[in-house]
């Protein structure tokens, strides 16, 4: 684990895997909840957790370096189910990358339990991990200027669902009616870091 200072009052804690980052994130949330850590933002990402708005970054850095941190994230709560129609325009390309027949993409994806590793890109956009590394896919060579809201998509090791229409370079494999972000709802985000997720296939209508 490496603790890098960021500006005057933030730390970037770097670990060696996504699992470790999720475990570290859960541990830091626990410390903040029990009152032993005061941070305005705790932002997990692929291999790091950012602590922003620290009162005493040097002290926190020393504590983190000295601490024994758990290597695996704790069990999360209930599984969030996202209904999906596997009807995306990039299914054939993804099947080719995976080396499987096209209908297998849906079967493999739907039997995987995902975890929200982190959020970013847009409010409510989660980077979900869970697929084995052999199913990593590249981004599209040319990004689409508009990806519809509710698109279920793959890039690298991640699955994501577009909360709203936006440009995007991910491989589209399906669509959902689930509302990923609604700022009038509490909580506004359907997916937050650490949550467990399953995609439940719906027949094409």
């Amino acid at each position: 684990m490496k603790v890098l200072p960021v500006g005057e009052d933030a730390l970037l804690v770097e670990v060696s895997s996504g699992d470790e980052a999720q475990a570290l994130h859960a541990e830091l949330l626990r410390r903040r909840a029990e009152g032993s850590l005061s941070a305005r933002e705790i932002v997990p990402a692929a291999r790091t957790v950012l602590l922003d708005g620290l009162d005493a970054p040097d002290r926190v850095a020393a504590e983190l370096t000295a601490a024994d941190l758990p290597a695996a994230p704790p069990p999360a709560g209930d599984v969030i189910e996202i209904p999906v129609r596997y009807d995306g325009p990039d299914l054939a390309d993804v099947a080719a990358h995976w080396g499987v027949p096209e209908p297998e993409v849906a079967r493999i994806h739907a039997r995987t339990e995902f975890r929200v590793a982190f959020c970013g890109f847009a409010p409510g956009f989660g980077y979900l991990t869970g697929l084995p590394p052999r199913y990593d896919v590249p981004r599209r060579a040319t990004p689409r200027t508009s990806v519809p809201a509710g698109s279920v998509a793959l890039a690298g090791p991640y699955t994501g669902v577009y909360p709203r229409s936006s440009p995007g370079g991910w491989q589209l494999i399906g669509t959902t009616d689930a509302v990923l972000w609604d700022h009038a709802r509490v909580p506004a985000a359907l997916l937050s870091p650490g949550a467990r997720v399953r995609f439940v296939p719906r027949a094409e209508s």
Partner: peptide, 10 residues
């Protein structure tokens, strides 16, 4: 670089 958290003024 894998995605990581960004701060104001970065």
């Amino acid at each position: 670089l894998p995605s990581e958290g960004m701060v104001l003024g970065a």
